[in-house]
C-alpha cells in the first residue's frame, strides 16, 4: 500500500485528482427530533482546501447527523447547507463521496459494486470496467474483484466502500466513523486510503470519536458537543491548546457529559 504524502499514481490513473474543491458552508443549521435538539445553530465552513477535516466529539454529540445533513441525506429544520453555490442535492453536478460506519455492499461482485457507482455517476458503459479495475487496484482489492462483496471481511468491505465512494471522482469525501468496527490492520489500510485521497486533492471530512485517528489524519478539527460546534481550529492548535473545557476534558479522556 502506498503511503501518505505523495499522490498514489494509481489513484491518479483512475482519474481521481479533482479540480477545485467547492467550499461547504453550513449556516444556522438546526434539527430537532421528538423534542430533542440534535443540531443547534451549526455554522461552519469546511473543505476550503484539500485537506482532512475531522469532526470530533463524544458519542451522541451529533457528528454523524451533521455529516448526513452536509451530504443532503437529512433535511435540516432550519438553516441552509451549500456546496459552492448549490445545495447538496443528489444531482450529479455536486459530487460527494460518502462512506458509512457499516459498509453497505450491494448483493453482487466487488467489481459490480464499483461499476454500479460509475453507472450512477453517468460514466459510459465501455469505460466502467477499466476504471473500476484501476480503482480496485489502487485500493489493493484487485484480486477480489470477482468475489461476492457480501462475503468479504468487514475491513475489505469498508475498503470496497471507500473505493466505490471515490469512483465518482467526488469533490469531497465524507466518512462516518469508517473504522469504528474494524481491527487495527484494516484501520491502517483505510487510513492509508484516506491519506492518498487527500493527497489527490480531494477534500475529506471524517467523523470519528477515535482520538488517535484524529491526531493521525486531521489537518483541521471541528469539535462538537450536544449538537453545537464548540471549536473549529487547525489540528495542531486544537490538540495543543483546546479553548473549551469540554474539548479539554474530551482530550484528557474524561467523560464528557
Amino acid at each position: 500500500m502506498a503511503d501518505a504524502g505523495v499522490v498514489d499514481p494509481r489513484l491518479d490513473d483512475a482519474g481521481l485528482v479533482a479540480g477545485g474543491v467547492a467550499p461547504l458552508c453550513c449556516s444556522g443549521v438546526g434539527l430537532a427530533r421528538g423534542g430533542r435538539v440534535l443540531l443547534d445553530d451549526v455554522t461552519l465552513e469546511l473543505a476550503r482546501r484539500p485537506g482532512v477535516t475531522v469532526i470530533l466529539g463524544p458519542n451522541g454529540a451529533g457528528k454523524s447527523l451533521l455529516l448526513r445533513v452536509v451530504a443532503g441525506l437529512v433535511e435540516p429544520d432550519r438553516g441552509r447547507v451549500r456546496w459552492g453555490p448549490r445545495p447538496p442535492d443528489r444531482s450529479r453536478a455536486t459530487r460527494i463521496g460518502f462512506v458509512f460506519q457499516k459498509p453497505v455492499m450491494l448483493r453482487r461482485s466487488v467489481l459490480a459494486n464499483v461499476t454500479y457507482a460509475l453507472r450512477a455517476a453517468g460514466v459510459p458503459r465501455h469505460e466502467r470496467e477499466a476504471r473500476a479495475r484501476s480503482l480496485l487496484a489502487a485500493g489493493d482489492l484487485g484480486h477480489l474483484e470477482r468475489v461476492s462483496a457480501r462475503v468479504l471481511s468487514g475491513g475489505e468491505q469498508q475498503r470496497v466502500a471507500l473505493v466505490r465512494a471515490l469512483a465518482t471522482k467526488p469533490e469531497a469525501l465524507l466518512l462516518d466513523e469508517p473504522t469504528a468496527s474494524l481491527d487495527p490492520r484494516s484501520t491502517q489500510a483505510i487510513e492509508a486510503l484516506v491519506r492518498a485521497t487527500r493527497a489527490a486533492g480531494v477534500g475529506v471530512v471524517l467523523v470519528t470519536h477515535d482520538l488517535g485517528q484524529a491526531r493521525r489524519l486531521a489537518d483541521e478539527v471541528v469539535f462538537i458537543h450536544r449538537g453545537r460546534v464548540l471549536e473549529q481550529a487547525p489540528a495542531a492548535c486544537f490538540f495543543d491548546a483546546p479553548s473549551t473545557a469540554a474539548a479539554r476534558e474530551f482530550l484528557d479522556g474524561g467523560l464528557v457529559l
Binding site: 451530504a71 443528489r90 450529479r92 460518502f98 458509512f100 448483493r107 454500479y116
Partner: peptide, 25 residues
Amino acid sequence: GEYEEQLRVLGVSRLEMVATLLWDA
C-alpha cells in the same frame, strides 16, 4: 432499509433504485 442511504449518496434515481432493489432481492 439497508440500501437507502447508500443509493442516495450514489445519486441513483428513484427508478434505478427500484430496479436495483428488485435485482438484488
